[in-house]
Design a protein around this nucleic acid. Structure first.
Lengths: 174, 174
DNA sequence: AACTGTCTGTTGATTATCCAACACCGTGTT
DNA sequence: AACACGGTGTTGGATAATCAACAGACAGTT
């Protein structure tokens, strides 16, 4: 942990730049987005952009990395409990997807680059497989189940219906 | 017009400070609000506050003055048309109240100080009386009517139902 | 009365952002 | 080919905001 001491100004600048890029990604393809555009939307001077990021791609990478780190952290807190069953783990996973559906949906859909999707799948899989007993691991069944659940969640998330899923969640649990 | 050249940073700082004060006024009385509190909510250094305003009261005054100026400007554009009838003028007035109901409601209700309310009434009255013919003015009737309408609007606004009024506006016009 | 904690108003040194300007490049126009 | 246009990446000086620190005022505790 290189403890970056973050000035309020830096924090604000980076935040609005990230927000701007995400907003723009809703509307147009990544490669069509210009530095100038990002800065105008963020109301930040263009030279300030270059003080933080080399180019839009590096900004995008930063956003992705932060989401991955956040996801890892979130899931890790629930990893501590011993031997949760698959259903509860799935629930946690979907809760996270649901909470961050706005960003995740955008990032997963910016077709072309699917490295982000790979990373998400990887973290999710680690989480699901983590607490299996070694005997369970010998049968490859849990692996298939994990992959199945994760793929399903991600594809649904991409389409954008996950919010509805969350809304109906209570009903299902009865 | 002392043409204030406004740096983006100044604009942002002042904006968040104003927003913060308004948010706090929703929750507590003006005199119980501290500079520190405003700055923490705005995420602005306290010393920066003093670079812009002497104290919370001056900040409040600024907010009020800007609303008054904005209101005057808005109504002025509709003042240009000749001889609009009272009904249409009233409509414009209420439209403005409705558009700004969030701020207006807060500012009008911070009981104690009613100087702001006086200013609002004054601007509104000017607007209503402005286009009366001199014969009309001789009878004091329009004066009473204006006062009546304005008082009514303001009181309704204070209670917070004006949004509902706007929502039902279309029905009334039929 | 001494003590504690909190807000105040101000300061000086440091850092971040702004702005305007620049040369460069690629694309499209005439 | 010459040209205008718009985005790029970079610079230097001006300006604004940050942070940390300070002494003073005040209210509540012990």
């Amino acid at each position: 942990m290189t403890s970056e001491k973050l000035d309020r100004r830096k924090k604000y600048t980076r935040m609005v730049l990230k927000d701007s890029l995400l907003k723009l990604l809703k509307q147009k393809t990544f490669s069509s987005i210009t530095v100038k555009e990002i800065c105008e939307l963020a109301d930040i001077n263009r030279s300030t952009f270059y003080a933080h990021y080399q180019d839009p791609f590096q900004l995008l990478e930063t956003i992705e990395d932060e989401i991955i780190a956040d996801m890892r952290k979130y899931l890790h807190t629930y990893n501590l409990q011993e031997k949760e069953d698959a259903l509860r783990m799935t629930e946690k996973l979907i809760q996270y997807f649901s909470a961050k559906h706005e960003e995740l949906q955008i990032l997963l859909n910016k077709s072309g680059e699917l490295s982000f999707e790979r990373k998400v799948r990887h973290v999710a899989e680690q989480f699901m497989m983590n607490k299996m007993t070694s005997e369970e691991k010998n049968t490859h069944l849990p692996e298939y189940v994990s992959k199945f659940i994760i793929s399903g969640s991600i594809e649904v998330l991409k389409i954008g219906y996950l919010r509805d899923v969350r809304n109906h969640q209570k009903k299902w649990r009865s």
